[in-house]
Amino acid sequence: MSGGVDSAVAAARAAAGGHDVTGVHLALSRNPQTYRSGARGCCTLEDSRDARRAADVIGIPFYVWDMADRFHEDVVDDFVAEYAAGRTPNPCLRCNEKIKFAAVLDRAIALGFDAVVTGHHARLGADGLLRRSVDLAKDQSYVLAVLTREQLDRSMFPLGDTTKAQVREEAAARGLSVADKPDSHDICFIADGDTRGFLADRLGEEPGDIVDALTGAVVGSHAGAYGYTVGQRRGLNIGVPAPDGKPRYVLSITPVTNTVTVGPVEALEVSTVSGERPVWTGGALPDGPVECEVQLRAHGTPVPAVVTLQDGALVASLRSPARGVAPGQAVVAYRPDAAGDIVLGSATIR
């Protein structure tokens, strides 16, 4: 229970459904701030109190579990290391994989609980298939797609059939004071939202070249290649105009030479995406190509594709090229379905 409205209503629904529910708030910061500031919706002492009050109102026991050390090792340090390696990580996905549905789940199972319930917006029905939320704008199946069959079998997402607006209404009806608490966004452990500054504090500034992919010419400089993401256009501060006068985008980041390579938008287009460490939860492992859609970043538009699993990798051949495919993000395969698109599998983009 983060202290937000979603986990509060999820807990209330689980309790109302007859489960023996215990509320757990994760202390993820080694030095929590006293009060919320900006767009963060978790991790302060105020959020911890909000979660406790929600548990009181629901009538369930409540505890704070200290996961700060594991969170720092598995999520924050990983986040920094991924950027340092020129990739663009998704820390929410990593937190689900390593903390909420691993460290927390394992501890809960050992203590005698059957499952972890969260307020994620995704559907997980009796068929064991993970599907998009009915609220497509709030759908979080992308950051859950990394979960394995074993993890999903011990998870409950009671909010998947409910829109965010309905969740808020229900929270108000249940007397939960977090009903109109603002949504959280941004990365929870970067309080001011300044990701580049956060990385610069940890990785140091290291000036390098911005190179044009077509001409090989140095067209600008940067303070550290880790500050860039494939597909990025803004904030490049390139002094020399492109020969064709069109805007340039980040095509790749090469940490070894500390080089950011830029080029025209067409050069961003990829038609094959391959991912490592694949997970497949949408039924039996396929022995051949699978017609599906793939999503290549959080809130990205799904692209029709053919996916194959081969040699420990997931390879997606896109029906139409996609742009801004950043290594470190997840490629998630969905099968379109009237009852909510089904997550087939996922992998980390190389």
Partner: peptide, 26 residues
């Protein structure tokens, strides 16, 4: 201690880890 406390609490036994808590973190 805090795992034991949770489990005993669930069985109706109230005890303490005896340590200072800030935000409930032992």
């Amino acid at each position: 201690g805090d795992a034991l406390l949770l489990l005993l609490d669930a069985q109706g036994v109230a005890c303490s880890t005896g340590s200072a808590c800030s935000a409930g973190v032992a």
